[in-house]
């Protein structure tokens, strides 16, 4: 079955190619992703698709690096800010359940590392 990583890998390749083009890059060396703990995304699966999808583009051969962002919440009752345990949405400080997620649901390209075209070449 085609997993959702395929569509998302296509999406991230397109973003990376367009950003690389903007700065006049001739090759993308690395794509750095930030992946929230609460996003279902398998980076190994992404790498597999990426190798196929990027063939013949300036992104071919780029390394895909992912940094996972742990869940961070703020408690609306006691203002505790920090992690939770074992996906339990309960404040570790006061036991409150009125929490807001501050980090852990994002999924974006943080940066790309590129080789720029040499002038006149």
């Amino acid at each position: 079955m085609e997993m959702h990583e395929l569509g998302l890998t296509e999406e991230l390749l397109n973003i990376a190619l367009s950003e690389a083009q903007k700065v006049g890059a001739e090759r993308i060396v690395e794509i750095k992703l930030k992946i929230g703990e609460f996003v279902n995304f398998d980076i190994e699966c992404c790498r597999f698709y990426y190798n196929e999808l990027s063939k013949g583009t300036i992104g071919e051969g780029a390394k895909i690096v992912g940094e996972y962002l742990p869940l961070v919440i703020i408690c609306n009752s006691c203002n505790y800010r920090g992690g939770i345990e074992d996906f339990g949405f309960v404040c570790k400080n006061c036991g409150g359940k009125d929490l807001k997620v501050l980090q852990g649901e994002e999924f974006f390209i943080d940066n790309i590392e590129v080789i720029k075209k040499q002038n006149g070449v």
Partner: peptide, 8 residues
Amino acid sequence: MVRVPVLK
């Protein structure tokens, strides 16, 4: 090599 911020 240059690192380019993307944040998309």
